[in-house]
Amino acid sequence: MRSLMSAARVAAVLFCALTGLAHAETVEIRIDNFTFSPAEVHVAPGTTIVWINADDIPHAVAANDKSFRSKVLDTEEKYSRTVAGPGTIDYFCSLHPHMTGRIIVDGNGSDGAGGH
């Protein structure tokens, strides 16, 4: 299931890269070892962010500005949210608030491992 998702994601990214379209896509953020990975993503408006909890401990995703809050995610559970943007969304784990992440929604966003 997960490899299928990854394949779909890679396909979507490839498609966008090849066509250069600002195509709605999905970006996956894994929660692993109490870390959002990648911790920062740059995405285009309309991108759907999918968080997947890969830990043996539940986590939850909450925006700093309280604009959204997931239910608790047990192991392998997912939460998704489509971001409108542009703008910056800072979020954290409401169980473990030292876990933080950032989504930067900008016009020329692409699938982001961040830092570009």
């Binding site: 909450a62 700093n64 954290f92 409401s94 608030p97 030292h98 933080t100």
Partner: peptide, 13 residues
């Protein structure tokens, strides 16, 4: 008995 697990802030303890 104190409660320190609600209203947690991003980046905080």
């Amino acid at each position: 008995a104190l409660v320190n697990v609600v209203n947690l802030k991003g980046g905080g303890l």
